[in-house]
């Protein structure tokens, strides 16, 4: 549980940096779009996630909706990263 909290906090910190906001202002229900993160910002977030967690995120900017990685909200990104980290540990 502490482990997962750490993942969530790190993902929020990454997103907060892109959104130029305080992490405390970021809620799981927020969409990346609402936070003012454009497509280039999304690509940078994913890069930061890959580098931080040493995972590979399946994401193609040409059709974000077609990938298996759900980037619709902060919460969905956290859930996806948790999955990837769990897969990596198993």
């Amino acid at each position: 549980m502490t482990q997962d909290r750490a993942i969530a906090d790190t993902v929020i910190a990454i997103i907060a940096e892109q959104a130029v906001r305080d992490p405390a202002q970021i809620a799981p229900a927020d969409s990346l779009q609402e936070l003012g993160i454009d497509s280039m910002g999304v690509v940078e977030c994913i890069f930061a996630i890959e580098e931080t967690f040493d995972v590979t995120v399946p994401f193609n900017a040409n059709n974000p909706e077609a990938g298996s990685f759900d980037i619709s909200t902060v919460g969905s990104v956290i859930a996806e990263v948790e999955k990837l980290v769990a897969e990596q540990r198993s």
């Binding site: 690509v43 994913i46 994401f59 193609n60 900017a61």
Partner: peptide, 8 residues
């Protein structure tokens, strides 16, 4: 180019 995620 991979970094931009626009490659097929």
């Amino acid at each position: 180019w991979e970094g931009l995620r626009v490659m097929s």
